[in-house]
Each structure stands twice: as C-alpha cells, then as structure tokens.
Design a protein around this nucleic acid. Structure first.
Lengths: 194, 194
DNA sequence: TAATTTTGGACCGTTTTAGTCTATTAGTCG
DNA sequence: CGACTAATAGACTAAAACGGTCCAAAATTA
C-alpha cells in the first residue's frame, strides 16, 4: 500500500478535469480510469460510485475556496477590507468553480435533491460568512445596516447571479469583474452613507 | 418551406460548436437537436446520418478556409508574398480547424477509411496549391528549386506536424506562430539562396 | 380546401454504461 | 520462503442511452 489517500486525491484531480470539461453525464467511469492509466475496477476500489467521485470533487473545490477565503479575510484589517478581500477571493475561486456550478445547473435539473442539497449548504455558509463580516462592521460603527442577515442574502444572491455572465463570456475581457466592482461600490455607498 | 439550405446551414453551425467541444462520440443527435430547439426527427429531415453532419461540418470549415486562402493569395503580389499570405491565412484558419482535426485524430483511429479519405483529399489539395505558388516563383526566377512537388509535400507535412503543439498549448502565447515563422525563414533561405 | 413540407414522439435493435465479480498479480511482514 | 493483504485487470450483467425509423399531426403553401 503506497498511500490510499494520495491515489484518491489524484483520481479526484483527473476526475475534476474531465468533469469540468465534459460535464457529469458525458464523463464515463472508463474516461476517468483511462485518465488514471488504470482499469475501471481500480477506480471502484477507491470510490464507491460516480456520484461519490463527483461529490468529492465539488466538496474539495469548495473547501479549497473556503480556506482561501477564510485566511484572506482573516488577514484583512477592518470590515470594509475584509468584505473586499472576501469578494476578491471569491471571484478568483469562481473561475475554478464556474464549470462545476455549470455542471450542477445544467445537468442536475432532474435530480433536484442532489443539487439543492449542495447549493443550499453552500449558500447558507456564504450568507453566514458575509453576515459575520457585516455584523463586525456594524458593531465597529463602520457599516450602517438595519438587517445584516438580509443584506448578506442580497449580496450572495447578487454574487450568484453574476456567475451566469461569467460562464457566457469566458473569453476576452471579463465583464464580471467590472460589474462586481460596481456592485461593491453601490453596496458600500448604501452601507457607508450617513 | 422557408429555406431548406438555410436551416441545413444553422444545423451545421450548431453541430460544429458541439462537435468541437465534445468530440464526435460524446456528441449525440439529441444534443444537436436540442441545440436547434427541435426534435431529433427534424434533424434527420435535413441530414441522413450523424457522420453525414460531421463530414458536412468539416467540409464547410475546409471550404471556408480554402476560399479565404485563395483570395488572400490572389491579392498578394509576388510568389514570396503569396507563400507568406498562404501560411498566414492557414495559421488563422488553423485555429478554427484545430478542434475538428483533433476530433479526427483522436476519435477515428479505428475508422480508418473515413479519416484517411478526408485527410488525403485535404493534403492533396494543399500540396497542389503550394506547388502552384512554388512553380510560379520558379518560373519567375525567384525560387530555386529542383522539385516543387516534393518541396510542397515537405511544407504541407511540416505545417501538419505543427498542428499538434497548437492543440497542446491552446492558452497563453502561441508557440506555433513563432515556430512557423522560423520554418518560413528556413524555407525561404533554402529556396532563395543561390 | 387540398397538397406538401416540417415536426414531435413513440418506438426499435444495438451499443454503451455504471457497477459487480472473480481470478491474478504485487507487495509486505514474519 | 510462505501466508496474508492490497491492488489490479478483465470478463460480465442489467439498465440506460444511442442512432435511426416510422407515422400521425401540425404548419405551411398554393
């Protein structure tokens, strides 16, 4: 036994690439096995099903983004900087996640349970993180908000809505960044004014 | 009847995009039909088979590249400029063709007849075009060549060989252009030197 | 209205697919 | 070496997806 987790990791690496390229349904277990240079049975030795691999890929991507965001936010000084850091990190991670999100959106429409579970978990976590930042800002007297929870929801919803044009306009200059900056300006204006 | 050829054209447009994204085998007739917002039967009303559509896509792409090259070459003044124009146009068209060529290379290894037919036809046409340019240059006393046919074959072979690294390094700077320029220099040097 | 073009949907035989089973190899430890 | 375990390949199966057909119903044209 070399290292089971290590091989599991490289399976996920291979799978992530193929999944994000071809989508869930067009990716076959044989594709992944071939990408590993092994037989299909070997893959089933490390994972119990195709969905198992896919969930693991999504989870891995999410947790990587999560930890990046957390450290980046922790390093920022005041709440305003933290929020900016959060949005920046999220935008970076977005590019990696876009394909997977896209897969979820386009391919699991008929399998609602699966999608909704992941999306719901993600959304709630994001809302919580942003709400914490906003709360901190409010108690510091920097933000002026009646309801930080609702504001966090609005921000997350806006961010999610922004993913679509990113998918559409993958090449050339990226209009998302500009729009997110504008959004941020508007939000800051709303929060900071009087 | 609106215009049968028009609809055929838009089917090809849709098919070209899906084929070059997913490859031949991973593209289903239902994908193409869905891309057209129609049922599968409608597609079979305009085309007789999946391979029929694929061939038509390749042919269309080739003829577009062909006419571009021809006009560009015709506009150039002397044979040296014509050869340069040819290579430049071919490089441009290459980017559109790369995916399709890639599909042919990677997916039709087991279906030799199909691939060889298309490749052979293409090669012979390219060789003929280049040979004509070289002949013109020789009779004008600009190129010094013993066998323009063999030289044309060498050039086509070289150009074809160049496609592979283009596929591999699609993003960022494109090493192909540099290498083609070098190749052209070398060829010109060989042809022009006393 | 009648004739023709175009379409959706059910359908069919075949191929591909996710997943299983088993036998075999490679590696470890005493 | 020999016994045990980890890891793999490959044949296999049931179910799904696939390319392609058929036909009746729209939609269009005349």
């Amino acid at each position: 036994m070399v290292n089971k987790d290590e091989i599991r990791g490289s399976v996920l690496k291979v799978a992530q690439e193929i999944f994000s390229r071809y989508g869930f349904h067009k990716t076959t277990m044989d594709d992944i096995a071939k990408g590993m240079g092994k037989g299909k049975s070997s893959i089933y030795y490390y994972f119990s099903s195709k969905e198992d691999i896919f969930s693991a890929v999504v989870e891995k991507e999410l947790s990587e983004l999560r930890s990046k965001i957390i450290t980046s936010v922790a390093l920022a000084m005041d709440p305003k900087e933290k929020l900016k850091a959060y949005v920046n990190e999220r935008m970076q991670g977005l590019r990696n996640l876009v394909n997977l999100y896209n897969v979820l959106r386009t391919e699991f429409i008929s399998q609602r349970d699966f999608t909704d579970n992941i999306r719901l978990k993600t959304d709630e976590e994001e809302i919580r993180i942003i709400k914490n930042i906003l709360d901190e800002g409010v108690s510091d007297g920097i933000f002026h908000l009646d309801d930080t929870y609702l504001t966090a929801i609005a921000l997350v919803t806006a961010l999610k809505g922004m993913e679509v044009p990113l998918v559409v306009t993958q090449t050339g200059e990226n209009p998302l960044e500009m729009r997110l900056d504008r959004l941020l300006d508007v939000l800051f204006y709303g929060m900071l004014k009087r």
